[in-house]
Computed example of a mutant assay.
Amino acid sequence: MIRILLADDQPLVRAGLRTVLASDPELEVVAEAADGRAALTAAERCRPDVALLDIRMPGMDGLTAAESLRTGHPALRVMIITTFDEDRYIARALDAGVHGFLLKSGDPYELIAGIKAAMNGGTVLAPAVAHRIVRVLHGGELRDRLAARTGVQSLTPRERDVLALLGEGLSNAGIARRLHLAEGTVKIHVSAVLNKLGLTSRVQAAIYAYRAGLAG
């Protein structure tokens, strides 16, 4: 069972998220908070596996709470879920070492899959967030693009398909649905892609896919 701390200042939003999470028997909301300070207290009291934090909350905001949680609870998987995908929020969240940045407008299934991916050591980005990061990094040199286009030649056609979907910010579950594969098979392909290209994260893979012309 994955124990979840849910922090959002809007009761209706918390209720909606709680309903989505309750649809999966492997997930359990063990604590709720309406601001960042309450989230820190709840984390101390309940010791959740995952903290799901909104950004804009009264008092201590979600990003400040995320930074404190990452420092005080290294094993806790901290994820941001918000309506905002502005660059300054994304950059600060990634600098804080969060394990996910998801949008409330996304597919509920992607939220559940994202939590499970984070528990397995992944970093999960909503597709819109992944695209924004790639656009910010668009100023890379032509040499990087040429190297990426050469590098993908070492991949099998299926691995290139997987890399392209990593470029869209999809989770393993999302890739599995798109390619009609078992999620375990996708996990094997993702590992092969990262190993062959010398990458260490899904974010690096998304950037590589863009440079190689597989994602836009």
Rank of each mutant, 00 (worst) to 15 (best):
R211Y: 13
H131N: 14
E44V: 08
G16E: 04
T156R: 14
A176E: 05
E168F: 10
Y208D: 05
V162R: 08
V203K: 09
S171Y: 13
R37A: 14
H73T: 05
I112W: 05
G167T: 11
A164K: 02
L76R: 11
G100H: 06
E67V: 12
T150C: 10
R178I: 07
R177V: 12
P25T: 10
R56P: 07
T64W: 06
A51R: 13
T123I: 14
V78K: 03
L199I: 05
V78P: 04
R14M: 09
R37M: 15
R70C: 08
H189L: 05
A130P: 09
V152Q: 01
A118M: 06
V29H: 01
L194Q: 13
S105N: 05
I115N: 03
A75N: 10
A215K: 02
Y89I: 06
E110A: 15
I55P: 08
A96N: 04
L5N: 06
R77D: 02
V98P: 03
Y89R: 02
A7N: 13
L137A: 10
A42R: 07
N120Q: 15
G72Q: 04
R3C: 00
D54H: 01
G100D: 09
L94H: 10
R56E: 14
G139L: 15
V152T: 01
G59T: 09
R160S: 04
D61G: 12
G174E: 01
A93P: 00
G72F: 09
V136F: 08
A173S: 13
N172Y: 11
E168D: 15
A7Y: 07
L94W: 12
M60H: 06
Q204E: 15
A113K: 05
H138I: 14
T185Q: 03
Q153L: 15
G100R: 01
N195G: 14
I90P: 06
H99V: 03
V29E: 00
I80F: 03
R202V: 10
A212Y: 00
A130C: 13
L52K: 03
K187C: 04
R160Y: 12
V78G: 02
A130V: 08
A91T: 10
A15E: 14
G213L: 03
L163K: 05
H73N: 06
P127F: 06
M57C: 08
V30T: 15
G16V: 01
V152C: 02
A176L: 02
F84S: 10
A93S: 01
A130E: 07
D107T: 10
G213T: 01
L179S: 07
I4Q: 03
L181P: 07
M1Q: 12
R45I: 04
R135Q: 14
R18N: 09
L170R: 12
V13D: 13
L165W: 05
G216F: 04
P108Q: 00
R14F: 05
G59F: 06
D9A: 07
D24E: 05
E44W: 10
A113G: 08
E26C: 11
L163P: 00
T156G: 07
G213P: 01
T156M: 08
V162H: 03
